[in-house]
């Protein structure tokens, strides 16, 4: 990590929270895995912004994976209050589909019934574990992309080079 460890926790927490909230809200969650990748890109951006040195793709993978795990926790707890809404929405979609496609098999209605009954602690933990594992991989991908986009810092100017771009507050020029 170029001699200095980037701050992983806060950027991952913020990116994960954003991804988890957006992927847990019905209708907004229609972007599927893109929210997780997007949240991890945001986490990488925040980490790169606060880092005094250039960060590498591997740093992005770590930050993104943590963001994905945070997103899984947030999503699972976000989806609890929306669960009834989501099931009602899905039933409505199936009814509309049957209107337009008369040959829609009746079995499709109970196709996703696994996990749609009353919430058990085991089901919740299984969902959390699965989400965390999958989101960590997707988050790692997003983090790497984020680091490729934002991780590189401009090389420090050599002697006699005039700096024309304004510096971030707290960065002192000698």
């Amino acid at each position: 990590m170029n001699g200095q460890k980037p701050n992983v926790f806060m950027p991952a927490l913020i990116g994960g929270a954003v991804a988890g909230i957006l992927s847990g809200i019905p209708l907004v969650n229609c972007l599927c895995c893109l929210w997780i990748i997007g949240g991890a890109i945001l986490a990488s951006y925040l980490a790169a912004k606060d880092s005094p040195v250039s960060l590498k793709a591997g740093d992005g993978a770590v930050i993104g994976a943590f963001a994905g795990i945070f997103a899984a926790f947030v999503r699972v707890f976000m989806s609890l209050p929306f669960r009834a809404t989501e099931l009602a929405l899905f039933r409505k979609i199936m009814e509309r589909l049957s209107e337009y496609v008369p040959e829609t098999p009746a079995e499709w209605k109970d196709m996703f019934s696994f996990g749609s009954g009353p919430i058990s602690l085991a089901g919740l933990l299984l969902g959390l574990f699965l989400s965390a594992a999958i989101f960590a991989i997707l988050g790692a991908l997003g983090g790497i992309i984020g680091m490729a986009l934002f991780g590189k810092k401009p090389a420090p100017p050599g002697e006699g080079t005039k700096i024309e771009t304004p510096q971030d507050p707290g960065h002192r020029q000698s």
């Binding site: 895995c33 499709w108 196709m111 969902g127 699965l130």
Partner: peptide, 17 residues
């Protein structure tokens, strides 16, 4: 089969249409 649909539910809305 139902379990596999459940596994993919966190990453996709799975709308049949």
């Amino acid at each position: 089969g139902k379990f596999l649909y459940f596994c993919f539910s966190p990453v996709c809305h799975q709308i049949p249409g």
